[in-house]
Nucleic acid binder design. Structure first.
Lengths: 215, 215
DNA sequence: GGAGTAACTTACGTCGAGTAACTTAACCCG
DNA sequence: CGGGTTAAGTTACTCGACGTAAGTTACTCC
């Protein structure tokens, strides 16, 4: 088998296995066994167990980036971009629960792997900060990055809450709640105001890839 | 040495060591060496390496809880409670950077240790949800918990951002920014509005424990 | 047709979590 | 006073998992 083929196969096996059983409890021998190769092949490709996890993270990061960027093509108005981007983000997670599990359940904050995960957040933070920064009054410009970080932290906790207690919540519902909190603000939410898509936000439904409910 | 004494000493050594060098890279032998005892003593007290980490987490959790609860004594008005609680939270973290590092840099989301950390979040979430819930219109009551989770995620990211790039930000500044985002809301922030302490929020300064700047 | 290279394997070194068996010493009670 | 029980602690070990060295097959390219 050729090198890139092996690499892709190993990444797929590793992602799946890590998601199922957790990074710590999975051994390199087990991954090698599942992939039907021997252990040194793994080390030849990825250098170490952490290196393997880092490679998995990078792959997921790339896909996620592409999903969000793709959804934002042609969207110029910041409010709408925020909505479209958030929905794409939550939808990606819903469609890639395995991958997402790897990212967050193995979320050590130190070491090279953590650095790769932080790159994801920085990409997202820069995007959000850009959307927010252009709208803030000049004296609040410095707040854009803090705002972005706050949004990202909120997103991640909301995903965990949804997975733990409310799997029926759609990506759109998550995004709309988040915008209720951040965009509208609690003081107005208190009076019953809600966030609503600006103008006519295009439905971000690319016709879900046909998964008919089994009888 | 008596058992509770040993236990306290070992917890202190473990917290310090984990904070300095990271959970994974520290070995039980190293902790034993630093505490000037032999390894089986550790296992007699805590059962396993994860058990030791869990014990450290529980200790921090208790202290944190006491700090926030203490700050909230006698505060009844929800807006003010939110402010006081957030400031106490950020201040606790600023005053216990070692402990906090242990909590978040070793933040695996699976296993018993993770469960202990989640207990912290649930305590905080219940508190915030209670503060928010009583103020929301009945049809939004269900949003209180989502709101609380979002706030917690935002808090944690803000702390990381502060540590990484802006160590000069005070707990009060962090809390006030957060309330700008969540309480006032972006749409009004855009117009230059800011959050301000309700009524006259009592200064939450218990006269900082005299650390005069060295010459 | 032989040399070099790329994919791959067996067999091993090593380090760290966790444990079994033993030692010391204090305390209790007749 | 003296033996037994209990609590604190130590030495010396097993075992599993990461990582590696050396060797094997097979394909390609002069």
């Amino acid at each position: 088998m050729t090198r890139p083929e092996r690499e892709a196969q190993l990444l797929a096996v590793a992602e799946q296995t890590f998601a199922e059983r957790g990074f710590k409890t999975v051994s390199m021998d087990e991954i090698a066994e599942r992939a039907e190769i021997s252990k040194p092949v793994l080390y030849d490709h990825f250098g170490s167990k952490d290196g393997l996890l880092a490679a998995v993270v990078v792959r997921i990061r790339t896909e996620m980036r592409e999903a969000v960027d793709g959804a934002l093509v042609g969207v110029d108005e910041p409010d709408q971009a925020m909505w479209v981007g958030l929905v794409a983000y939550f939808r990606f997670i819903a469609d890639h629960l395995n991958a997402w599990s790897v990212l967050i359940t193995e979320n050590a904050l130190t070491g090279p792997v953590a650095a790769e995960v932080e790159v994801i957040r920085r990409q997202q933070a820069d995007l959000i900060a850009a959307l927010a920064g252009v709208q803030l009054p000049p004296e609040d410009a410095g707040k854009a990055h803090m705002f972005a970080e706050a949004v990202i932290g909120a997103c991640e906790r909301l995903v965990l809450l949804q997975r733990a207690t409310s799997p029926e919540l759609t990506p759109e519902a998550l995004a709309s709640n988040l915008l209720d909190f951040f965009w509208v603000g609690f003081q107005r939410l208190r009076k019953g105001e809600r966030w609503a898509p600006p103008a006519a936000a295009p439905s971000v439904e690319p016709s879900p890839p046909a998964a008919p409910a089994p009888a």
